[in-house]
Design a protein around this nucleic acid. Structure first.
Lengths: 306, 306
DNA sequence: TTAGTGCACAACTCACAGTTGTGTACCTTC
DNA sequence: GAAGGTACACAACTGTGAGTTGTGCACTAA
């Protein structure tokens, strides 16, 4: 591809060869190989150089795009000036939406989103410089954040109950936490040992709920199918979760009250991180954040805001 | 890249090797080579398979994107079901804008835009199936379109005068064609023998203008610089041409009247072309087209509408 | 312990990318 | 019209390196 673009830019095999520090014959072979692979003639050879054929013209923008993407791919792991790298707790929670909003507001900022195991891993990654920021609930019981990690509260995401049409609570406009006692709530894919698991452990302990975290996560589709088809089963889901809503499943989202369990999302970053886009992200989140109103909501006691 | 993605998708070097019909050792070597090139560890090897590192997670979307782009690049020259391929007369004329509008309205339609030499070449390319459609002025003097080529009028693009701030006509709100007699008008990059050149030839002959078509086209920037700096020089430019307006050059666009020379853009395509997107394009252009009002405008006598 | 799984290292082989050398086509110049 | 220059293709050769087979090590499960 590089050779193809070089020939286009110089207009000659000879000059492209010079640019690439190889012989004219090598360029000829490379182009011939590409043409053979594509089963299409890309250049018409003339005594004064090479001109793109129609197929070549159509191919050219794709070739340039490929080189751009390849460059970005390398840049994404290049130490030093790589894209801002942010850890989000799961692709179906509010932070993903926040990052989408940030990308819309600043499309010029290169961004890489990853998902780490838990807040411990995230903190270690931030300290080592492997990531620049992390959306997490701070912090695990009895484990204060290290001195060099800063954090700021971003938003509380209310949990909603998701049921199928045949569920006992399907008709309710809202349910209280007390009403949920005795109902089976299924949360597959919650990994033990993470702060997310700790969150639900506390929720269970405080209100006597029955949460089944067993079983691997077969993906969002499988979860929704099961919820829709099982009258005795429900699940929790973040209010801002954007589902690919399966048509005809009759799924219901029901707000939970008295109190409303909220999952507290904070942004964590390293005190000394010099990445210019990090400041932009923090400013964006500050501007987008609603004011903090904890009235009527519940979080585990170990949650820190500072 | 394919190997990297295969390992991610299967979770194991072994299974990726099976998918790719190579040995596990070859996969190991490929990944090791990629990691060496990037100077970064992409997988953490465990006795139960390979897990992405943080760098690997950041790299993954770029790798997938690269494979997608590569696939599109190949598809762009694949005979049979390739993207709609449209010839536009120049990137700075109305058809380019129309195609941008079409792409915005139908982003799902794959599109390749090329620029051919003249209407003769375009017609030949349409007949051979090399392109699907062409924006051209139909037709050259004394050369009717072949029977199997259909055409429809799309729009008339009024020409405007572009001058620098020191030009004699710079202050005019509009100029008549008669006023242009005696002024030097510079149109570099017009290739003799094309229907575009024929257009200006007719314009010169009919109104006694002085149009200099000499000199190669050094690009839009060079043209604008020269126009801005040369008080005695002006150029014609399509009304819908979107310029990267150089700041501080004081360039003026001045409408031309009595009559207004317009460049007639038509769409040409092959009667039997079965490409589904072609019908969509024609419907889009019909819907977007203004009604045809030729009053007060000028085109060469050989222009055909049918 | 033993068997099994999964990846890495080592040695070998051969395909092919790149090299040098040469040929052909076409344009320019006198 | 002959001579020289330019630009690309073909042919023969060479060396790198991608892939193979063979083996070893680390970890898990029974």
């Amino acid at each position: 591809m590089r050779t193809f673009v070089a020939v286009v830019d110089t207009g000659q095999f000879q000059d492209a060869a010079t640019d690439l520090s190889i012989t004219q014959q090598a360029v000829s072979k490379r182009i011939a190989g590409l043409e053979k692979y594509l089963a299409v003639r890309l250049f018409s050879r003339t005594p004064r150089g090479a001109r793109l054929t129609i197929d070549g013209q159509a191919f050219l923008p794709h070739a340039r795009e490929l080189l751009r993407v390849a460059e970005r791919a390398v840049a994404s792991v290049l130490p030093g000036s790589r894209p801002l790298r942010v850890d989000v707790i799961a692709s179906r929670t509010a932070p993903s939406g926040l990052m989408r909003g940030f990308h819309r507001a600043h499309p010029e900022i290169e961004l890489d989103v990853v998902t780490l195991f838990d807040v411990e891993t995230a903190v270690a990654a931030i300290r080592s410089g492997a990531i620049d920021a992390s959306f997490r609930a701070v912090a695990m019981p009895g484990r204060p954040l290290p001195e060099d990690i800063e954090s700021v509260w971003v938003l509380d995401e209310p949990l909603q109950l998701l049921t199928g049409p045949a569920h006992a609570l399907a008709g309710a406009r809202s349910v209280t936490v007390a009403q949920l006692a005795g109902h089976r709530i299924w949360m597959p894919g919650i990994v033990p040992g993470t702060e997310w698991a700790a969150y639900y452990d506390d929720l269970v302990a405080e209100f006597g709920l029955t949460i089944e975290a067993t079983g691997p996560n077969f993906g969002s589709d499988a979860l929704l199918d099961t919820i829709a088809d099982t009258p005795g089963l429900a699940t929790f889901m973040g209010e801002q979760t954007r589902l690919v809503w399966p048509a005809g499943h009759g799924l219901r989202r029901i707000p939970v009250t008295d109190p409303t369990p909220v999952y507290p999302h904070s942004l964590l970053w390293h005190r000394d991180n010099p990445h210019p886009a990090l400041a932009t992200l923090r400013a964006h989140l500050t501007a987008a954040a609603a004011s903090h109103d904890a009235a009527g909501t519940w979080t585990p006691g170990w949650v820190i805001w500072r």
